[in-house]
Design a protein around this nucleic acid. Structure first.
Length: 294
DNA sequence: AAGAACTCCTGTTGGC
DNA sequence: TGCCAACAGGAGTTCT
């Protein structure tokens, strides 16, 4: 489901009810998601405060009092729902079920000292939760090979060009690879390539000149990636199917898609009369404008 | 080492 | 209406 803007939106939604709060109960409804839940999961959380809720790439990262960190990934279909104490009073009609009553695919349910219930729901179970000593977070196998945050300082044209030098993989696959850039997925790769006028079928080395220096295309792509992510975060992410923000609100960036999911529709550039095309790359749909993206 | 194929799982959608 | 195939926002593992 979620790419960087959606995970950041979830983080912002969870922060007020999790950051600085103490976990008093954990209901773990099955042994695993994609991977087993952490050993003695509830023992390691109960009675402890969540000191901070961060995001790295598409991971939610909760620093737990006592020196451990909980790393969570939402996979394709993971989401959190928040039920506030006395929510019927606070938000009449907002919850269709009794507070505390669990829904199908609620696999882990956290209770805080304040009586807030935070349920992790994930039909496909491609998500996962793992714990690591906070001191070893950066060297954790899931974290250590991640590329730079696209909205951070380490990500720029010089980096991208050097990274792409000599690479024969197509641009779509190159940008989807989290080791190159962290946090992009199918939607935002398609949208960023459209915004920068680059074909998803180009080889990644198209981004670097001789000696791995950036060119004008690299600059355009970097700017487009930053812009589309910022726009999406400002819109609260994209709501496809039933994805919602943690507070139940729908993100609305899906209304701003230029190409994603728009096969057969006219290119949104007024001067272009081409139709958006869908192809399959590495088993995933790619949407692009064959006229604007070269 | 890089790249491509395969895999996990459930739910929804579209065509007949 | 039912049935079935295709597809879905991800990424670790395994192979070449």
């Amino acid at each position: 489901m979620p790419e960087l803007p959606e995970v950041e939106t979830v983080r912002k939604g969870l922060e007020p009810v999790l950051s600085g709060r103490r976990i008093v109960r954990l209901e773990q409804r099955r042994p695993d998601l994609r991977f087993p839940f952490p050993e003695r999961f509830s023992e390691r959380l109960i009675g402890r405060r969540i000191e901070r809720l961060n995001r790295r790439s598409k991971y939610l990262v909760a620093e737990i009092e006592g020196g451990e960190t909980l790393i969570m990934h939402l996979g394709m279909s993971g989401r959190f729902t928040i039920t506030l104490p006395d929510c019927a009073q606070v938000m009449p009609g907002k919850f269709e079920h009794d507070p505390g009553a669990h829904q199908k695919h609620d696999h882990a349910v956290f209770h805080t000292e304040e009586g807030t219930i935070i349920a992790y729901n994930d039909p496909r179970r491609f998500g996962f939760m793992v714990m690591t000593p906070t001191a070893e977070f950066e060297s954790h196998p899931l974290i250590r090979d991640l590329g730079p945050e696209p909205l951070g300082n380490r990500f720029n044209a010089a980096y991208l060009a050097a990274r792409a030098a000599g690479r024969t993989a197509d641009l779509k696959a190159f940008l989807m690879d989290q080791r190159n850039i962290a946090g992009l997925g199918n939607i935002y790769v398609c949208e960023a390539l459209y915004r920068s006028g680059l074909s998803p079928k180009r080889a990644a080395r198209f981004l670097s000149g001789r000696s791995g220096a950036p060119n004008e295309r690299t600059e355009r792509l970097v700017a487009a990636i930053r812009a589309v992510l910022c726009d999406a975060i400002a819109a609260g992410g994209s709501s496809l199917r039933d994805y919602r923000q943690a507070d139940g609100a729908l993100g609305y960036f899906q209304h701003s898609f230029s190409v994603y999911g728009r096969e057969g529709e006219p290119c949104s550039k007024p001067s272009c009369d081409a139709m958006v095309r869908r192809i399959v790359q590495a088993g995933r749909s790619t949407f692009y404008c064959p006229a604007c993206q070269r």
